[in-house]
Design a protein around this nucleic acid. Structure first.
Lengths: 253, 253
DNA sequence: TAGCAAAAGTGCTATAGTCCACATTTCCAC
DNA sequence: GTGGAAATGTGGACTATAGCACTTTTGCTA
């Protein structure tokens, strides 16, 4: 056995780094995250202290600290000086970007979609502008009637840059969440969305599609969805039945 | 002059700590923040590198790093590996809790308010429930017609726990923002608000007050405003002319 | 037994370096 | 000139260590 501690630590770093290329503090985070996700650690349970983590994972105190501080920023754990670090109670996720499918699932509903239109268009200049593209860019456009519990709930029109998503028109848009397709098949890392919300009256076509009286008030949401790097990916114009939707947001002072 | 570097550093720490009790990394942050706020540093300008900051403030690299990492989390600076640290462009504040007055000011409009009703009520059980109070609690209720640019814009009804805000009925609610009164006169530290948004049709009374046709679609927002400590302070039920308002929010994945 | 001081354990701040990954600039060879 | 390698400078990850502030527990004293 080697007796030189410094050498040992260096060797550890090398063997851990070359195959994984994942920093040590992130590996520690993953380990803790996994224990929380798997139910091995419950809210309120103590997480190993900085000093313990350092020993367990053979890293220095500062590295263990980094891991815990990072997890605290994520809201996964709470740290109390003089006491310890504990698994944080689960938070309600406000202002979270979710696909329609995910939103309905959160309400224990299964969302469906009927594709009304799916083509490439090149003269929708407002949509192009929202995506920061030249006015006459080729855009993928599809319109879907969203339903749940056997009822029509909403009408959504989506626009994407046609050049960037070849083959998307052939994807099972009627069955699978568009978010899922983008993330899984096109490896897009979605980051955030800016939404503009107002109220509008249902025009005859929308009223018929949504099975509501004409001029019924609807929530209209214009949503531009950006990648994690801040690039505009998707523009969605949606009309939502007010009797079936309730937009919930949280604001901070 | 002292030649022992370690001793010097320790002395610096002591002299700096005993009077201020402010950690070194926070002092460095303040110094940079001040230079940005005062306009001495503009967006895009480089901030001293970790190594420079360490030399300037006579601290170790890790401490300088800590200061910069913290500022980055705040969104004040951007760090790019191999390049440097730069002042971040000013951010639009999404999801920010603002009074109606503040919101209008952000749009370069001056908000006014006409008080239609201002009394203590004790049988508004929905409002009481929103404030986590017993159903028949005494509540301060006032209804205000908000206007800007000479036009009626919105109708807001506010509810507060009457027991906690004695004398609020005599405050100049028609002229001064309610937020301002709560924060300045009652020393309430506002924290966050949960909002429920939907669309509804204007009933005859609201239509007349807002000078719009009957059954015109309106944004309806139910807002519960909490103190920084999480105590429900204020419930606002508002109806907003859709042609004059646009709710803007940002969601994160 | 009651009270209080010491010990132990925790997170927080800080030092004084090392090596790596990445981007720009410089400068030399062709 | 021009291309490419080296030098330079940046942020990112990490070590090994020290002392402080805060809280709970322990144990001793009166």
């Amino acid at each position: 056995m080697a007796t030189n501690k410094k050498w040992l630590a260096s060797a550890d770093r090398l063997t851990a780094r070359i195959p994984s290329a994942v920093p040590a503090y992130q590996r520690i985070q993953s380990a803790i995250r996994k224990r929380i996700d798997s139910g091995q650690l419950h809210p309120g349970d103590p997480v190993p202290s900085e000093r313990d983590l350092a020993k367990i994972h053979h890293v220095s105190l500062m590295t263990a600290r980094h891991a815990l501080a990072s997890l605290e920023r994520e809201g996964l754990v709470e740290r109390r000086r003089g006491i310890g670090t504990f698994v944080a109670p689960p938070k309600i996720h406000f202002n979270k970007l979710m696909s329609y499918t995910e939103q309905m699932a959160a309400r224990s509903l299964t969302a469906g979609a009927k594709v009304l239109f799916a083509k490439i268009v090149d003269s929708e200049n407002e949509a192009a502008a929202r995506l920061s593209l030249p006015p006459t860019s080729s855009l993928l456009k599809f319109e879907r009637l969203r339903h749940a519990a056997g009822e029509p709930f909403a009408l959504e029109t989506c626009y994407l840059n046609a050049a960037e998503f070849p083959g998307l028109l052939d994807a099972p848009i009627g069955r699978v969440s568009l978010f899922a397709i983008l993330e899984r098949d096109f490896h897009v890392e979605l980051g955030y969305a800016d939404e503009e919300v107002d109220a509008t009256a249902a025009d005859p076509r929308i009223a018929e599609l949504l099975a509501i009286p004409r001029r019924e008030p609807l929530l209209r949401i214009r949503q531009v969805i950006y990648s994690a790097k801040g690039k505009a990916i998707l523009y969605v114009l949606g009309f939502y039945r007010s009797d079936r939707h309730n937009l919930v947001i949280r604001r901070f002072r």
